[in-house]
Structure formats: structure tokens, C-alpha cells
Design a protein around this nucleic acid. Sequence first.
DNA 1: TATGCGTGGGC
DNA 2: TGCCCAAGCAT
Length: 354
Amino acid sequence: MKAIRRALLRWYRANARDFPWRRSRDPYAIWVSETMLQQTRSATVVPYYERFLKNFPTARVLACASPDEVMRHFAGLGYYSRARNLHAAAQTVVREHGGALPDEVKELRKLPGVGPYTAAALASIAFDQPVASVDGNVMRVLTRLLDLRDDIRLPATRRKLEAAAAELVRGAQPGALNQALMELGATLCSRRRPACTRCPLHRHCKALSRGVQATLPVRSPAPRKKRLRAAAALLLRGGRLLMVRRPPRGLLGGLWELPGGELDAREQAAAGLLRTLREGVGIAAAAPEPLGSVRHIFTHRVLRLYLFRVTPQPGRVRRHGFDAHRWCSLTAARALPLSSLARRALDHATASQS
DNA sequence: TATGCGTGGGC
DNA sequence: TGCCCAAGCAT
């Protein structure tokens, strides 16, 4: 165990990649990075992280910002409940902890958006607490090191690995040990073609000694994605287009998009669009002009979004199921917090119609 | 315990 | 095209 610890730390000191969050000791900055890194590649996070910290340098500044402004800096990153939770948690930190992040796992876990992994990562990296943070990378490294063939989708497997990791990070430099395990999993101990010859743990790896490293970790297959269809409108009035904001919870919560909605089974796209406009924004229209479609893949769904240009009949917007609406210039619409899907839809619709 | 929640990249 | 994956969390 001691040899493993020493090998990991030495390897990490020599091989840690240079990320902006690794240059900071500020618990708030580390918190922001850990939140953005949840289920997200580090290369994707870098520009978001830098922009976010420039605009919201402290928990106090973040706590005072508007929800739209916070969401604007998460737009395109995905899993948007992270932004809402981070914002709410910053307000809690200001209100209950004087603006400074608590240093204990138990207190950190009470913050919305801070789960077992993030709490342990913060406590160890920012506050030197000897707790193990087990993410997907660590699970891959440890299942191989131990030749553990249990399904890593199961919580029971996760508990076993957390116990193993807890043994490892006992003692000095828990933050560096946790990061070393993650870094190893993110680089050498990759899912396919692990670079075992360069691995600091190759002498200790049970899976390697048995030649089964490429078969680990074992993970039961995910259920098949559901297909769904939706329609959205470039709804123009006096040179401005209508944008709507989705309610805070659920899919793409808090983000803006073109008005429209999901189609029923076998419903024609144009007819369905007119129905969703009637139901969602209380606007009547006729003869939608087709502008093509875009395909978008979510974690658990495959969406086909049909786009139309629509000339509305006179009448006020009466929202139902949306949070807010706004008549915008194209420039203003593009500056709203948009999901990647909404941005692509807007781009596609405006390019097709001109 | 199972499911919902984004996005972009790799093969 | 389809499937898997990447520093998970909430309900």
C-alpha cells in the first residue's frame, strides 16, 4: 500500500497536466471546476471555467448574480441543474458560512449539487482532509488494480471501491493522491489501450498480471435511447423573433429556445407546431413554411426537431409551460442563455430562410 | 434502486 | 448510424 501511494505521488508530480484550476488554491475556484467537470471532459471545461471565474470571482459575486446571467455562462456545457444548484449553493455559503466554503464533507454535502464525489474532492483538494473521491476514472483504475469484476453501475460496487480508495488516501497529501488516481485514469489507464508499460502501478496491477486489463471495468449495457420528434418556429413580428424560457426543472431547464414543443406520435410536424404554439404561447398562425430539421442526441433520447417560419396572427403572448418570453433581434436572441440544441436550431432556421 | 439529465468526441 | 464514454447529482 505504501509503495503504491509513493509511486502514485511521484508519477503525479512529474506528469500532472497543467489545468487552470490546478493553479488555484481558492476553495471556491476548485468548487466551480469540480462542478463543471462532473461528467464533462476537462478540455471542454477550460474555456467555461476561465470565463466563469472572470465574471464571478467569488461566492459573493456569484450569489448576487441573476439566474439568467449565471446560466449564460453555463450555456452549451450541459446538465444545467449544475448551474442552478451552484448559484443556490453560493447563496447558502454567503448566508450561512460568511462567504467561505465549509471544510467538512458533512457540511459540503448539504449544498445542492455537491454529492459524494464532489464533497470528497473539495475536502481533500482544498482542505487537506483525508477522504477519498471516487469518480469514473478512479473506478477504472481500482477495478484493474484489484481485478474486481463487479458491475460498476451497481452502487454496491461503488461502495467497495470507495472502501479501497479510503485505504489508499489515508495519510498525507490526500488531495494529490485523489488527483493522481483520477489523472492516471484519464491518461494512461484509459478505457481502451491502457498504456500499462508506462504505468507507475504496473507492478501492483492484478488485472495486468492476469492479462484482463482491457476487459475492465465491467459495466452493464445502457438502455436504448428513446426517439422523439419536436417542432419549433421562427416566429417573426415587426422584424423581431419570439424566444421563450423553459421552466427551471427538467430537460434544458432555465434555458431559452424558439417556441414550439414535442410532437405526438404520428402527428404531422406542421400541424403539431401550430398546436404547440397555440398551447404554449397562445398564438394562432397558419401555413408554416418548412426550414428543414436538425437531429440532436441527448444522453437518453434522440430528437428530430423540425423548423418552420411562421407569420403569427395578431394577439398577445399567453404563456403556458414556459417561464418567460421576449421579442428579440437576432443578435439579442443569440446572446440569451441557449442550449447547444437551441443555438443550432436558431442558426439552421435563420440560415435556411435567407 | 432506477431513472432523468447535455454535450462533443471516438470508433 | 449507433454506442460508449467523461472529474455525478437529485429524486
